[in-house]
Design a protein around this nucleic acid. Sequence first.
DNA 1: GTAATGTTAGTAAACACTCACTTACTTGAA
DNA 2: TTCAAGTAAGTGAGTGTTTACTAACATTAC
Lengths: 229, 229
Amino acid sequence: MEILEKTDSLNSLSSEKPSKKRVCREDRREQILTVSAQLFSQKGFNGTTTKELAEQIGVSEAILFRHFPNKQELYSAILDYKTNELMQPLWLNCEELMLERDDYKVFVTLAAQILETLKQDPCLLRLLFYSALEGHQLASNFLETTVRQVREPAVNYIKQRIEEQAFRPLDPILAARSFFSLVMQRALGKELFQDSDLQKTSSWEAAQEITDIFLFGISKNKDLSHSKE
Amino acid sequence: MEILEKTDSLNSLSSEKPSKKRVCREDRREQILTVSAQLFSQKGFNGTTTKELAEQIGVSEAILFRHFPNKQELYSAILDYKTNELMQPLWLNCEELMLERDDYKVFVTLAAQILETLKQDPCLLRLLFYSALEGHQLASNFLETTVRQVREPAVNYIKQRIEEQAFRPLDPILAARSFFSLVMQRALGKELFQDSDLQKTSSWEAAQEITDIFLFGISKNKDLSHSKE
DNA sequence: GTAATGTTAGTAAACACTCACTTACTTGAA
DNA sequence: TTCAAGTAAGTGAGTGTTTACTAACATTAC
């Protein structure tokens, strides 16, 4: 969208001439990916037409098929692009906190980073669910690899903390899943279902609430210093 | 589907003649709703064609438009039909348990009933998410009315138990939301994302795990008689 | 000049939806 | 009981439009 506006403003500045500025291959490709991601995330694969895509981008349909052999391949490329873009930085700030065994900060930071990421780019959540529903092959890839990849550090950390008698002895995978359930459901309600209750609270506040409930549920020591109640 | 098979078997019994048996208006309408619900839930609104619908039902396309003015109205009718069908019996068995203040049984029963309902009819979950994504007007209805309707008894019960000092003093709405988060995420992983870890456990086992974690998180008394660990 | 980037004007197939018509069932007077 | 008239259920062959995608031609940058 913003790239589109840039093009438009360039055109409107040169007023009379609609001198279409030519864009090099890789820039155009990225622009197509960005704009298409937004449209696909709003209307799904079947609900988005190539004509509409071309209009939003500001080129003819033929250009799309110059860059991607067909609509399906374009969609796949988008899923690939989006997952690579967003799934890496989630655990960045948590690692040192894990070494310090600061349970609260570990989980509140992780929750906040996930919520903030999904808030900044609502496309991702919608694309993920559209893909899961429409049975895209890349959607199961997404689940099998990326989700597990994000969950694994949490599982390992919880396992350690159970061994250290800090958490009560439950299934680490189950516990990790519960944590991500709380986070995801929050994002889902807020970004997808437009739950009015959730619109007020910030990502950080939400992360605190989630972590509070989660840690209270799995900890042995009930006097959590950061617990709000 | 089963109605379709019934028709087929009738036809095949009378061997030679393809004597299409006529179906009265209301039966046909319900058949259309049932079959369409399944197809729409699999492929979404835009992914399902009226031709395909008609073929699955075993009639001509024209019949569809005899019963519903257009595709959109048919879809709306399905959402209406499905929500009415499924959202009523969820709280049935829980009310007396609530009077007995049997916290564990209340939540485990509710969780199990929700999970079992969604397991029996996977259409509902998929239709709900398709509708939320596609921005159907009925989808927001669904959220605003039905979800709240299901959640309200839980909120009230938690509020009471907090007053009775049985639960620690947190926000009842937040607590209820957490509970349903755990339940929904379970259903989502199992029915939508085909998470292999979740396929093994039964609805009842899952309900127990969820309730265990949830009650441990909100209770004051940590020695839950039903807790598994 | 030429290679890359763009457009215009198409294609055949698929789409939601309609129309003129036929077929099966119900009714009730002879 | 019979059977013609009336009615509800169903159909085949379309409608115009939209779809994904293409081929042939045009423009720009170096």
